[in-house]
């Protein structure tokens, strides 16, 4: 995650961070590193929360420009809260994805949205162009290729939440080893019908 947009804007902002999301049999796991960097060359912050709850059973990972991502999260929470009070039930994950896709179009922000609704666990990948892509697992950020390498080998759609948590942690760990813009520990969220459980530590072993 870059906390300054450099000369080539969105592209530069994308090059920091590794975040992943995986659907498991009974929930979704989201994971992210904790480093904020200036263009990937200087560590600006070593304890950044890149996973934010946006609904009773929904959360996003953020990557890209910090300011745009934070504003987007605030807006998404407001949309979800308004929806719930107007309709008397929480927003479905697909409705959240649609609203988020519209809100982030044109902003240098990439999200993985994970949630559980009547249709079960859902993962969406959202890009700064407004694209909304449903998937079983997804990764964003400069470390995404390293993370995908782990996810492609280890992802199990029928796995338990704990299995998915271990896979997510391994994916972020692999990226943190080799991507200079990712690191400083792990934030891991388990999203189930009961809610969102977020844990974070400089030592990845403490949160898995």
């Amino acid at each position: 995650m870059a906390n300054r947009t450099t000369a080539d804007g969105a592209r530069a902002a994308k090059t920091g961070t590794t975040t992943v999301g995986l659907a498991a049999a009974d929930g979704v796991v989201l994971a992210a590193d904790r480093r904020a960097s200036l263009g990937g060359g200087f560590v600006a912050n070593k304890d950044v929360s890149k996973i934010e709850q946006v609904g009773p059973s929904a959360a996003v990972t953020i990557s890209g420009s910090v300011g745009a991502a934070q504003a987007l999260v605030r807006r998404l929470r407001a949309e979800a809260s308004l929806y719930e009070n107007r309709r008397g039930r929480p927003m479905s994950v697909s409705a959240l994805a649609t609203a988020a896709g519209d809100a982030l179009r044109g902003h240098p922000v990439w999200l993985v949205l994970g949630g559980v609704d009547d249709g079960g666990p859902r993962v969406y990948e959202l890009d700064g162009g407004g694209g909304v892509l449903a998937d079983d697992y997804a990764a964003t950020g400069s470390g995404m290729q390293l993370a995908y390498g782990v996810l492609e080998r280890r992802y199990d759609p029928d796995g338990s939440l704990d299995d998915a948590a271990a896979t997510a942690a391994a994916a972020v760990d692999a990226a943190s080893e080799r991507d200079t813009a990712s690191g400083n520990g792990l934030t891991l969220a388990r999203v189930t019908v009961e809610g969102v459980d977020v844990r974070t530590s400089a030592d990845p072993a403490e949160v898995t």
Partner: peptide, 16 residues
Amino acid sequence: VDRARVRAQEERLRYG
């Protein structure tokens, strides 16, 4: 009532 709902969210957006 709907104005109140929107207002409540506007305050959250504005002040967190």
